Simulated scan of single mutants.
Amino acid sequence: MASIKKRGNNWQVRVSYKDETGKFRTKSQAGFKTKREAQLFANEYEIKADNGELKSKRPPLFADYFWEWYETYKESSIRNRTVGTYVYAHKVLKQFLPNARIDEMDRRAYQKFIKDFGKHRAKSTVAKLNSLYHASVKDAVYDGVIQKDFIEKSVLVYDKDKTWDIEYLSEKETKQLVDYLMKTRNPHYTSKYMIITALFTGMRPGEIGGLTWENINKNFNTISVNQSWSESAKDFEDLKNDASQRTIRTDKWLLDLISELPHEDKQYRVFANQFKTIPTSNAVNKVLRAAMKELGINRKGFHFHSCRHTHVAYLLSHGVDLYAISKRLGHSDITVTSRVYSYLIDEYKQKTDDKIITALSDLKPENFSNDFAQTLHKAR
């Protein structure tokens, strides 16, 4: 029995059949240009299965399975900038587990791999690759390639010295930076405008690069986020997830500032510079570092994306609800916001606790006396 589905611009086939032992197996193949091509492949495969031409194969190497899984389930749906992460994850498996078959892997073997790989790497790197491997293994269990999920309950191992807390600017430093960027801005060079936009909206760098004039609504003082900009493909691409599609309220002055930029780009891109290109993250970082150096602000790990973190820190310091911040950032779930910004949340917890105690104190009876409590204590 075959299942044919369209994924992106291509078609994918999944054929279910019984091998010579009578056990059900599946074969997935993606990348067909037309539905007819996919159907022909399915028909041919089913005929081979009926004729007993398909021999059961030993499960592949973990690295090979991971790459086949990527090509089948992920390649047609991920953004260009994400491809490199999967390529790197595959390279790591080939380096650390070159001869490990997926059916031979167990929790002990995987934990040893994580220990060896993570001891010289940052937590974010280990966590990201672990999540990709886990997703592929879950599908391997679902497809009957292996019997158990050997990654479940694994413990991440990483180098704490390479794992930094989120870098952000203080309120004073943010004001200094904004003032400097405003005084030195030039509409023909859009990097400084992009930095200011990031500080005041919390948008991702790619989302800022993907803005068009149609996304700017000066009647309601909003910015609509519905696409991103790919530096590698030099073209628009889909957002990170469905939750990323959102409308952000902002100050009128920010939209007036953005409106200083030329409106001559053929693609209506807001931040296209005089060379008709969107500045890369490296280019924006160069401008940002120069500005911070001029102001004497020393933040070794601060970069363009850190403006998003600064936006969150500022909102938290002013008591803005975490749910509202999560929606503004375009996170799929408030738990994502809590996890990513746990360091900042803990930092501002003391301020929040003080506000809670102050608020609850208003409920205290006006004529409260602890005389009764003292009398009771003496009686004991």
Rank of each mutant, 00 (worst) to 15 (best):
H263A: 11
F302A: 08
Y65C: 04
L316R: 03
S244A: 11
W253S: 15
K276Q: 11
W164A: 15
K33P: 00
Q350D: 14
V83N: 00
F62K: 02
R7S: 13
L54A: 03
T184F: 10
G319C: 08
S136W: 07
S338H: 06
F372Y: 07
A373C: 07
K175V: 13
N285H: 03
N219P: 00
K119M: 10
Q147V: 13
I151M: 07
S136K: 13
R380C: 15
S230T: 00
K160A: 05
D159L: 01
Y168C: 09
Y193E: 13
Y180D: 11
D251N: 09
V13N: 06
D149R: 01
L211A: 09
T375L: 14
Y86E: 10
K74T: 04
L363T: 08
E260W: 05
K252A: 15
S317I: 00
S306P: 10
D256Q: 13
F220I: 09
I325Y: 04
P59S: 01
A63H: 10
L177E: 07
G330D: 03
R299G: 01
A109F: 09
G210Q: 05
S3N: 13
H263E: 13
I258R: 11
K162Y: 04
T174L: 08
L129D: 10
N241G: 04
Y180I: 01
Y45W: 09
T201Y: 09
V287T: 15
V336P: 04
W67N: 14
P262S: 05
A38S: 08
T352M: 15
K33N: 12
D165P: 04
P365T: 00
H90K: 11
H188E: 12
T34L: 01
F200D: 06
G330R: 08
